[in-house]
């Protein structure tokens, strides 16, 4: 079963990569929708996503961040290796909820980077699922360029900021839910 999922995943990834390369010509005036099959697989997976509203997640020494090329949400070979070892660690924890936070460098607008960082988080989530993590336990959160870890305008800094971090659900606080929505009414 797991093998079947994996091969299905690889073909889905292949189809979406293929469709991306078809639409990559900068002079092209119209862009066609990507093929149906890839979309269907994508929607089935995404709807099972963990809802992270009101939840607190924290970094773990055992989970490595991964880094992206400029304007890209593709996973490098090095990123895949890091994610594989992250996944091994997560599997040992059993039942833990995971958050993948997507981030960008400072170039480009706030809105564009929110969308790009969401794609980055989703790339990681897909890879985790292909490694057998439970879709319902893995959520995504895009911070765009809002939470840089390095503040200079340099290639070095930009590289550090183009990242996805995997975080673990924080232990519950004694005072119940941290979701402000549940504790107080909207004002």
């Amino acid at each position: 079963m797991e093998r079947f999922l994996q091969s299905k995943w690889i073909s889905a990834l292949f189809i979406s990569l293929l469709s991306l390369s078809l639409t990559a010509c900068p002079k092209k005036q119209t862009v066609k929708k990507i093929p149906e099959p890839a979309q269907k697989i994508q929607e089935v997976v995404e709807t099972e996503e963990l809802d992270v509203h009101g939840k607190d997640f924290e970094t773990s020494k055992n989970l490595d961040a991964i880094y992206f090329d400029y304007d890209s949400s593709d996973l490098s070979e090095q990123a895949r290796q890091s994610l594989s070892s992250n996944a091994e660690y997560i599997k040992k924890l059993k039942n833990t909820e995971i958050l993948i936070e997507g981030h960008c460098d400072e170039r480009g607008t706030i809105a564009y980077n929110l969308a790009l960082a969401q794609k980055r988080a989703q790339s990681v989530r897909r890879y985790y699922l292909s490694l057998g993590l439970d879709p319902k336990k893995v959520g995504t959160l895009s911070y765009g360029k809002e939470k840089p870890i390095c503040l200079e305008s340099s290639e070095e800094c930009w590289l550090k900021n183009r990242r996805a971090e995997s975080k673990l659900l924080a232990p519950k606080v004694a005072n119940g839910s941290k979701d402000p929505e549940k504790n107080q009414t909207e004002r």
Binding site: Q39, E43, E46, T47, A111, A115, Q118, Q122, T140, S142
Partner: peptide
Amino acid sequence: GLNSSASFSPDGKVLVATLSHEG
């Protein structure tokens, strides 16, 4: 997922937004 970058239509009846819940 992402719920962002919303904008109203000129008659105010419809909005366009970026959502990522389906992928």
